[in-house]
Design a protein around this nucleic acid. Structure first.
Lengths: 225, 225, 225, 225
DNA sequence: CATGAATGAGTGTTCATTCAT
DNA sequence: GATGAATGAACACTCATTCAT
């Protein structure tokens, strides 16, 4: 908290400089795509000389890779921070709500998806990393909740098995929607999320089981926006 | 000043030439994105001189717009060709199956979505057209089936109302999945589609109603691919 | 004068077509210069297909040459149409006035000069033709009047001899002025011409001679425009 | 994507580089006109990479403007460096002689005039600058000398008033002559100048005044060239 | 003859990358 | 290390010229 008296360094330390550039590059790539981005602009945004970029990154491709990697990791961290203690429908609702908060309503996560969709073919290892770091853990988390619910008898056993994607799909659609239509055809995300959660709950619910879980509906916080 | 060699010219009707160029441009744009595409390559692919492109399209942007428009319209046509005579679950299954055939398993439709996600911000009118021609009619079609099912008493009335997107979302996720992971993490589309249809059916079904519609399951053709 | 009933030809006869193109090309070259002119525009202005130009002229250079030649000849004709019967100052005034009418106040003649100044180095034979057809005869005409005036004792013998250009120079300056400043710094051509004529008259006048010629001042018509 | 060879770079101070490019561009524009000039050639002449031009000038137009401006200013400076102390005819002779030295016999000034005549319509602000910096001051200088001569009684008051252009016109004609005919029809500039000065002197001289000023004739240096 | 679609070398301009300072 | 001037290959786009129709 106290102001240090600039101990020794003339400029920002290496890591800080790198972070500056990454942040600037993210903005530029997100706005223009890989091919459309100009390193001149990145430098300007980072308040750094153009040549400096090349001291930290071999070339434009490396910079792009570094940017995407730097976007993937924090999302992953978010995904991993564990869930609460509840089970069944409530747990599923909580999990999906976290996905809304951390992906759908997170501009960086949306930009990441856009860049991966747009350029993924030319940077297959990034899609791979994304899969390993985000998709696979996410899918596992969902499957875990489903299995647990089945074990507990509150979820029907046969539905959507093997395809946890089906349960998150509406969240992904929401991301795509925002990417495509942005401010033009606004989606009421809070209402949409609730509809999604209800639909999933209904789809999973074991109809043979006594209908107690229903009561937990809407107990999920509304999201920040 | 300027010398010519052997122009080797063949006159094709205007529309044909234009179609050639559009097809070539589609491939190039789909492969490289807007900024990454090279008109040189488009010309090569179309077996046409570079200058010829500009005889048919004012500039790169116009060509891009024309390509996307030419992709949107056939999809729209597909969406419009009406469904069969059934109602309720069977009709919903048929409708969603058509979406799989025409969007998920249609490379052009996937490429269209990729390009719109990638460049939509720079060509907002294209996203708008896409919305009007594809999204809005698609959503209406789904809502119609839902309303009809509710009227017939076979669908629960309260679920996913106002958000038909939720019902198609898994199909869109499949598209995104293919765009992101392509051959790397193959999705068993046929199985996925069935899981999706079952889940939707389950989610919509009016549990108070006698359970007859279930029998129609799996009557849908497996898709081409 | 009577309308012929289109004897046989389908299109304009060759010479007429050629004249159309020349007229159009003149406008385009005058407006844009040689390098800046576009044959597409020439064709449009001539209401002819682009290819047609090449049926009448080998290439752009030939067309340019033909245009300038077609401009030079009529001016030459104008210069040659003989003068009146007067001598001395009155004759000089008449001669210079004709130059104003035919060169300074003639848009085509001005455009010709501009094109020759601009491109003359690349088309030396055109400057040569211009010299032979316009400059040399013009200079001779002036010298003739001067010699005649000297013989008649009304002009001083030693002045401006060998350099008839000096006497016309203000007219040329007027052309250059219009080319440079056009509507921006309008020259009152009528007043300017009179000042020029007066100055020349004064410069030539034999002061030993009785001052009778002075009376002819301003008897020259004021020019059209 | 893009590979570099051996950049062989030498850093010159910004102004020096700019001057290199301007000088090269002047040569190219003077030789080919605006539209005919090739920036490739400019770069070659300046021994600079093509891209370097755009580091110093936004585009071809800007470069052209900068070239013309850089030509106008020194001429202006020349025009301004004041005259001697003499008056009347001698002063007029000195003034006109300076115009010969600085405009007629100065290749850059001639090229400037050619470019302005050729392209002035497309760069009206340049003609305007030329007017303000060169034509207007030049005209004023001449008028000053004329007025002064009239006040001193050595010049006739009514002649060429309001049109100082008439007095310089032969010098401008000489420029145009050189531009049109160059080496083909050489003008003996020294003799021409003397004829011009004599003619002007004669035209201005107050015949009522005692004829003393005549003695100053031919005291003017012959010009360099 | 006339047309105008087609050609492709050649333009102005950009921008990732290098390197002298 | 940091800078930003310099590079030049690569790009979008032009336009004189050709020739099948």
């Amino acid at each position: 908290m106290r102001q240090k008296k600039q101990p020794f360094r003339r400029r920002a330390p290496r890591a800080e400089r790198q972070a500056q550039i990454l942040a600037a590059a993210f903005k530029e790539f997100a706005a223009k795509g890989y091919a459309g981005a100009r390193l001149d602009n990145v430098a300007k945004r980072a308040q750094v000389a153009k040549g400096t970029i090349f001291l930290h990154f071999r070339d434009k491709k490396s910079l792009f890779r570094a940017v995407l990697r730097s976007l993937i990791h924090p999302v992953r961290a978010d995904v991993e921070t564990g869930g609460g203690e509840c089970r069944g429908e409530a747990q599923m609702r909580e999990l999906l709500s976290r996905i809304y908060a951390e992906v759908v309503e997170n501009e960086k996560a949306r930009a990441l998806l856009r860049l991966l969709i747009a350029e993924g073919e030319h940077f297959p290892e990034l899609a791979q990393i994304y899969y390993q770091e985000i998709i696979a853990p996410g899918a596992s988390a969902i499957e875990l909740v489903v299995e647990d619910g089945i074990d507990a008898g509150v979820f029907e056993s046969t539905v959507a098995r093997g395809f946890p994607q089906i349960l998150v799909a509406p969240a992904i659609l929401a991301v795509v929607w925002v990417l495509l239509f942005g401010r033009r055809h606004l989606l009421d995300i809070d209402a949409y999320r609730e509809a999604h959660l209800d639909f999933v709950a209904r789809g999973l619910r074991n109809t043979a089981h006594e209908d107690a879980s229903r009561t937990t509906t809407h107990l999920v916080p509304g999201g920040k926006q």
